[in-house]
Amino acid sequence: MSMAVQPPWTFSFGKSSILSHHFKNTSYMQIQLENLVPVPLRDKILQRSSDIWNRQITFTPGSFIKIKAPSGTGKTTLVHYLYYIRTDYTGQVLVNGQPWASHSKATIAAMRQEQVSVIFQDLRVFEQLTARENIELKRVMNGQPYCTAEKVAEMAAKLNVTHVLNQSGSTLSYGERQRIAIIRALVQPFQWLIMDEPFSHLDEENAQRAAQLIAEECKARKAGFILTDLDNDTRFAYDIHYNL
């Protein structure tokens, strides 16, 4: 594990539950891992060393985190644990000091609308909606859109997907879907952006544009991200690198 320079305003809370609780409503969303081990990969993981699995980790709010993970090490599994759509693990994922399971479904929904956003590796675009509607769904979900429709158009232009906005989700190429999924993740407020190989279907130029847009949007929100990928890259000024 290599620690890069942290922004001066970031700090770690350890396990102080009072502070974490305070954090819940007012400030940055705290994500911690405690001896997290996926049940299906247990034997494999315990035989080798990992910067993430089976450790105590606090993700520093606002930092750009890269998790490098070769195939089969549980990269997507980790993303799903972080976003709480899989629970087949031992140990804990603590959010604001509390395990995911202790948060109500309504609270989790509110967090997903306001505090944490995600780009899945398998993109998960609604095929019965157009590209624009897929983005719009997320934009208007919380009642008070964070982004304007013009802002969406601007982002689409930056990622070269303006021409497919009115196309049905089912007719989009993977590259187009990936860029739609990126824009969808960026139209909401968040403090953490979780990305699983977000550029896997993009050419170098589009990947650079997307990375730039993501960095800009994170900076605008003073948000951090957790990005998992197979290889090393220099698309972002990462604060922290982990090896899964």
């Binding site: 976003y83 759509i85 479904k105 309504a106 929904a109 509110a110 967090m111 997903r112 609308q113 995600v118 998960r124 609604f126 019965q128 769904l137 997320k138 979900m141 919380n142 969808r184 909401q188």
Partner: peptide, 15 residues
């Protein structure tokens, strides 16, 4: 599947 994806994307069960 659609409802599960909606929930994954942050749609509240109440919505």
């Amino acid at each position: 599947k659609e409802i599960q994806l909606l929930v994954t994307l942050g749609t509240a069960p109440r919505q």
